[in-house]
Write a protein that binds this DNA or RNA. Structure first.
Lengths: 331, 331
DNA sequence: CAACGTTGTTTCAACGTTGTAAACAGGTGC
DNA sequence: GCACCTGTTTACAACGTTGAAACAACGTTG
């Protein structure tokens, strides 16, 4: 085991508290003792025991990031930024996966209370606003990503309605008229899908175009592929997929059917995952500023952790950019 | 703050230790007191303070998983399995990213000592065997993935030489004769690249075929795309990319150049990331059993954490399967 | 020169938990 | 009546840290 303050104190011939003072950079320590102590510290290669420090201070320096699945590239990319932002505060990040299950989300919200983490960044899928509002626990919580606004906790996301409208407008601007949406969901009282659907509809309505909507259960490639197969019967000339994974699945279906992208069907996604920058054709998409999302989420969490409870929940928007690529523009 | 053992004890009219005994399922507690205590526990919604428990027990219940980058799909997929395997032991997993940098790897190895985590699963890139061997620290450590064997710590990986040979044999079996390798590295004393290169060479040598080798710095799509552009001059009829990201980048270059896969150039990768199952054409690859890798890594780590130090480092192999898809077989 | 403030250091207690050992009650056996 | 179990419960100390308070030594100040 490593050396404790006690060992250092013994070696340096001072009290434990003095060593503690040196370690914590307390001002009033005489140069002589400071030198002695520092020598002893480096001699024994002292490392503070963080369990003990945390017990004393009531903090762990660890936050949790709970998201549906780490192997969805969007979330993997987002995690990278969260981890980086947290690292600047010397926080560690434990990652939990909900798989979009209500029960897992409950478990995690509940588990936050066992003092292993100082706060939680949750990317919710299944849990409802009312259930969140009923939370008795006062551990710091930030909701990340697509979610009905004005909920009971701090929240950061892009403006999904406007983003979806922008993508749809892009397709309309290309002269497409039979524009389908792929990615609506039945069970998503709290999620993205309704917001993106609303944006899609707003754009179509503004131009008097008809809508076609395909539903999926989850945002994975194979569901995109399957839903696209069903859509082919409607002969759309453009498809707005509610995320990039769906779009990549859909692209596979279209190309396999011998149709061309974008000549026969223009395709757009949302998320800007790296895959879409290397697919053939490359995928037009809308790129949320993931670094900003992560930074804001961590900042909000820090404010909650440090601050007094009782402040009203805060709503924050992160930016985005439309990335027009080959799947709508052609080569 | 939550209730402590003391609060429960007061409410139930017993000693703190009795409550602790109930919480920990100690056998010799009379049914009557057990009931009393359990009532009080649920009444105050008791949660053990894990910082305190950890301080006492000297364990944190948290392990670290350090890998180059979370947004490389292979590592994201692997992380998912590690987190799942750890969850079965009630362990949390903090993720650290090294970005393949030596300094970060050192930092992380060093940081393990501050008692925040019980052990470390490291997927090393830059650090050398000798430096690892010189480690004085005795915190549990497991090396995960491609790495020179017989190092100073437990290690789990697939048999990279054999795997690379199998992929190359597959290409040879298709009748290809100008088979290039994409993904060799200059600086990788400790990594995958030399092993995979060796396997590739073994296969070619066995059939008397000539080799062509393209180097990259890191295993990312854009490097695969760039390296492939350089390879095109050699007019290979098949390319074995040392991982799937390289292959997907290469595929993009080939298709953009107006060549066909696999008719003009057959393409194979290694990793079996999900992207490759939905690219057009779908990507032939070799699929390491990631779930097995993760499980073994966690098991080895558990054994180290529980066990006495001093046992010799253990070498373990995980299985793999060749997934022949369109990029070599055609439709 | 007494009262006071500053600087440097220490003692003490506490954070919440659990291992150890000891205390206690209620038998059994002799 | 005593020694000796078995089962149940408790007191105590300890894990390593830090805030609060106390203390000693030394100027300053009125």
């Amino acid at each position: 085991m490593g050396a404790s303050l006690r060992d250092i104190a013994r070696l340096a011939g001072v009290s434990v508290k003095t060593v503690s003072n040196v370690v914590n950079g307390y001002a009033h320590v005489s140069p002589a003792t400071r030198a002695k102590v520092e020598h002893a510290l480096s001699q024994l290669d002292y490392r503070p025991n963080l369990s003990a420090r945390n017990l004393r201070r009531g903090r762990t320096g660890v936050i949790a990031l709970a998201l549906p699945e780490l192997d969805a590239p969007y979330f993997a990319e987002l995690s990278r930024f969260v981890i980086e932002a947290a690292a600047e505060l010397r926080w560690l990040v434990v990652i939990e996966q909900t798989d979009g299950s209500l029960e897992r989300e409950r478990q995690i919200l509940d588990g936050v209370r066992d003092h292993r983490v100082d706060g939680l960044i949750l990317s919710p899928v299944a849990i409802g606003v009312d259930e969140l509002a009923a939370r008795t626990d006062d551990t710091a919580l930030v909701l990340l990503g697509e979610r009905i606004h004005d909920g009971p906790a701090d929240h950061v996301a892009i403006d999904n309605v406007r983003a979806a409208r922008d993508v749809t407008e892009h397709l309309i601007g290309l002269g497409r008229t039979r524009i389908a949406a792929l990615g609506a969901q039945d069970n998503s009282a709290s999620g993205t899908a309704p917001l993106r659907l609303a944006g899609y509809r707003q754009a179509l309505a503004a131009h008097g175009l008809p809508e076609t909507v395909a539903k999926v259960e989850r945002y994975r490639r194979h569901e995109g592929a399957a839903a696209m197969a069903a859509l082919l019967g409607h002969r759309p000339d453009a498809v707005f997929c509610f995320n990039d994974l769906l779009a990549l699945g859909a692209m596979r279906t279209i190309l396999s059917a011998g149709l061309r992208v974008p000549e026969d069907i223009a395709l757009a996604g949302l998320d800007d995952i790296e895959d879409g920058r290397y697919s053939t054709p490359t995928l037009t998409t809308l790129a949320p500023d993931k670094a900003e999302l992560a930074r804001i989420a961590v900042d909000l969490l820090k404010r909650r952790i440090d601050g007094l409870p009782g402040h009203p929940p805060q709503e924050t928007r992160a930016g985005y950019r439309l990335m027009a690529r080959e799947s709508t523009l052609g080569r």
